[in-house]
């Protein structure tokens, strides 16, 4: 295990690659319908503790595949990957205690049970000390305004309420890194605003590293000091949002990104 000092990146990827269908895995010998394609093709990434990074790119660019490797869900085909000093897939269980994940389109909460029950279960699963759990729950209940629906079954919550519940669920164990996959998708304007303010505050207050994928330009504009863009599994832009903006307005840039055009020429 590599020792982490403050100067080391908390997320480090070198030549990170994930190929589907053509990997030498025993199960993948047969030709699959989506036959051999490289979802992530040699990504280099260094993210320092406390950064808030927007990870953007068109659909199918490899965003989700990257996040799934960073969380240990998928095994990389090749390349080096360290998150908080761990090799995600191998140290999946230990890494899980140090990361939080929010999937905008999926809930990690127990559908038929009151929201609070999910939190108490997570306390046990993540072995959160009781006093720390109490403090955190009180804090997030106030910050995300959960009070009125803590005792309501999750299936009865609105999308915005559920998202706030999911964000809390991902943070109760004080993760050092948080991945948010489309956290504002489908939310109304008020909820979107609340989620953004909360994330910005979280990042500044606790120094939690945040990696955010989104299709919402306003999310990036409001939150991210740095943007990493990916297309066809390759990093096409990595820099500050100000540099991006210096050249042209952000909206055009992002729109181009989602159409899948490379940014490299336009920023040089």
């Amino acid at each position: 295990m590599t020792t982490t000092s403050t100067t080391d990146p908390i997320i480090l990827a070198e030549g990170l690659t994930k190929a589907f269908g053509s990997s030498p895995g025993r199960f993948r010998r047969r030709r699959t319908t989506d036959g051999g394609f490289t979802a992530v093709d040699g990504i280099d990434l260094r993210i320092a503790p406390g950064e808030l990074v927007g990870y953007i790119g068109p659909n199918g660019a490899g965003k989700s595949t990257t996040i799934k490797m960073l969380t240990g869900i998928l095994t990389p085909t090749s390349g080096l990957l360290r998150v908080a000093g761990f090799e995600p897939q191998r140290d999946r269980v230990r890494l899980a205690r140090r990361i939080g994940v929010v999937f905008g389109q999926r809930t990690t909460l127990w559908w038929d049970l009151p929201l609070k029950d999910s939190f108490t279960l997570l306390q046990r699963l993540y072995r959160i000390p009781p006093d720390r759990f109490g403090e955190n729950l009180a804090y997030y209940t106030a910050a995300l305004d959960l009070g009125e629906f803590l005792d309501r079954p999750v299936r009865q919550l609105s999308l915005g309420q559920r998202m706030r519940g999911d964000i809390t669920a991902a943070l109760l164990h004080d993760p050092a890194v948080v991945y948010l996959d489309e956290p504002t998708i489908g939310l109304d304007v008020v909820s979107k605003h609340a989620v953004r303010e909360f994330l910005s505050d979280l990042n500044q207050r606790t120094g939690t590293t945040i990696l955010l994928t989104t299709h919402d330009i306003a999310d990036i504009e409001r939150l991210c000091s740095r943007v990493v863009a990916i297309d066809h599994g390759r990093v096409t832009y990595d820099g500050s949002i100000d540099d991006l903006r210096a050249d042209r307005d952000l909206e055009t840039v992002v729109r181009e990104l989602y159409l899948g055009r490379s940014l490299v020429d336009t920023t040089e």
Partner: peptide, 14 residues
């Protein structure tokens, strides 16, 4: 609460 420096107890739940 910004205690991200404290390493969590590393033993996973049995």
């Amino acid at each position: 609460m910004a205690d991200t420096t404290t390493e969590p107890d590393d033993r996973p739940l049995w």
